[in-house]
Design a protein around this nucleic acid. Structure first.
Lengths: 338, 338
DNA sequence: CTGAAAGCGCTAACAA
DNA sequence: TTGTTAGCGCTTTCAG
């Protein structure tokens, strides 16, 4: 079996308390004893059990990461940055793909609690405030990323979605588009609302009319974007530009356009949101609103860990700025250049 | 604080042994007591500590997943299927991106051991046999996915890389290509060797000459593919087709070609490997060799869990068949149609 | 500077 | 059917 602290103590001729002290570098131990203990630990290839130490009240050094889908490039990239920063600060991360399904979400959370994770980072977009409220009551440290719940006192890191929506729309307007559709992810979700609000504001700031009809709802899949785009393009006097609220949706829009022979960007301009790796690789390369994913991941972990270590007293909200990344899916609306 | 088994016992007026029994559904307990205990558990929102139970010798119900990079779509897709199957069988998964770095790899493994995970799934491609050998000695269940180490007695799930290399090359040959370059990931790695072997065999089976010069080595990044492709295309009499050993490399090849104005597929045919989401989205859509990722993930987890539950006596190797997915980066080598 | 001993929350004989 | 008790491996007073 795996050697325990007792094995080390015996071999080194000391007590387990002493071994524990050298492991954790606590208390004061003579240099010789210390050396000896360390030597024995090497020899026996001793690995202290984190589960045992967690039982005594110490941390598990594990955090949970709740995301809709790790296979979605946006979240995979977030996961990577979370993992890196977590690792740097001494925390492992458990991945939980919820598909934005409320049941999966609560099951995963419950599981994470049973495993006594030190904290949870949440990026799923369900409107399931209760579960979170509950977590908060239990004092389980949580932090939100790329998701906003203004009603809750939680550490949050996100991009200014309003700004992003505004920029995306302004870009399209500056290109001469008069009829701009938007495909949102979920009207209930804050980030969606904000992007739409930005869209609307941009329209109004340019003296254009905001038309509810142009607001379409889908999800966060390529297929979803394809379907909605198909109906948009099938309209009588279709929009000349579409603002897809995430890159995956935009991919779907591109596909839909291609299927019915609509040229991009000459017949239709498309702008996405996120700037995942897909945006630079797709055909044609997608103009999109970039989120500083690396930075976001880094910052949530820092916030969460401070919370875990109780080095903070107040919750925090950090809002990062998105930026327009122009590629080849947007261009002048030549149709109107009579 | 969180309620413990003692709190439940007290509230329900029974012993902790009884509570433990109802939790685990073991032994025989009266229906009334059972109901009462369950009721109290609900009321106090009791969540048994998996860490405490793990300490008594039970499993942690957690497995580690070692991959090069979760942000790489191929591995993200693998991770998703592993997570799903794991979840189904009652295991959480801890993600570990190693960047194929030997140090990170051993650090992560050591960490996983300290956290007492029940098993580890390995998809990283380092030639670090020692660490694995060590794991094996310690009887820690491990399983390999998309990676082959024929010298070790380990459960393994992979695609027939030889076959894949053969098919990719045959496809190119059937299109009339006479000079086909191959960009491999790492000559030391088994899967790379096999793909090259398949490439060579296809060449020879069609009476073509195998030329060492056409073997190029890179890594698993777009940038890597771009660089190597650039040098290939800069040659005097460059290849008319490139077999990139993974989709990311292929993306790089596409970029390199575009940069110097080489048309795809008319001037240059490209075939990838993996069939990640990128292949269908890139420009132009990539012809590639598809790996049955879902199935692979599902099967490794099943193997690993059987190993963990000690329901197997012998190690197993399951080899799945890859399949050619023709898209738009390959076409007749018109140059030779004098 | 070092060790004895009391837990941490739960499981698993073994009794009753 | 239910309860007593001895651990699991480690941390942490508190003595020595």
């Amino acid at each position: 079996m795996k050697p325990t602290i007792y094995d080390i103590a015996r071999e080194a001729g000391v007590s387990i308390a002493t071994v524990s002290k050298v492991i954790n570098n606590t208390g004061r131990i003579g240099d010789k004893t210390k050396q000896k203990v360390m030597k024995v630990m090497k020899e026996l290839d001793y690995q202290p059990s984190i589960v045992a130490s967690a039982l005594t009240g110490k941390r598990t050094h594990t955090i949970g990461l709740l995301i809709p889908d790790i296979a979605n490039p946006f979240f995979a990239e977030i996961a990577r940055s979370v993992e890196d920063m977590g690792n740097e600060l001494g925390f492992s991360v458990m991945m939980c793909s919820t598909d934005n399904n409320i049941d999966k979400e609560s099951k995963y959370i419950s599981l994470l609690e049973q495993k006594r994770v030190d904290g949870i980072i949440i990026a799923t977009g369900t409107r399931n405030t209760d579960v979170l409220q509950n977590l908060l009551k239990k004092k389980l440290p949580i932090a939100l990323i790329a998701r906003d719940l203004p009603s809750l006192p939680v550490d949050t890191v996100l991009v200014d979605d309003y700004m992003g929506g505004y920029e995306a729309t302004s870009h399209l307007i500056s290109l001469g588009h008069q009829k701009i559709s938007i495909i949102a992810e979920d009207l209930k979700v804050m980030s969606s609302k904000e992007r739409i609000r930005g869209y609307r504001q941009a329209l109004e700031d340019h003296g254009m009319e905001y038309d509810e009809e142009q607001i379409h709802v889908s999800d966060f899949t390529i297929e979803g974007g394809r379907e909605v785009a198909a109906t948009i393009l099938a309209e009588n006097n279709p929009a000349t530009a579409i603002f897809a609220c995430n890159d995956l949706l935009a991919m779907g829009v591109i596909q839909a356009a291609r299927e019915i022979g609509v040229e991009i960007p000459s017949d239709l301009s498309i702008i996405g949101f996120d700037n995942t790796i897909l945006a630079s690789l797709c055909d044609p390369p997608l103009t999109t609103i970039a989120q500083p994913i690396q930075d976001m991941g880094k910052q949530v972990v820092e916030l969460l860990v401070k919370e875990i270590k109780q080095e903070k007293q107040s919750k925090q909200r950090v809002v990062l700025m998105p930026s327009l990344e122009v590629r080849n899916t947007t261009s002048d609306n030549t149709k109107n250049l009579v």
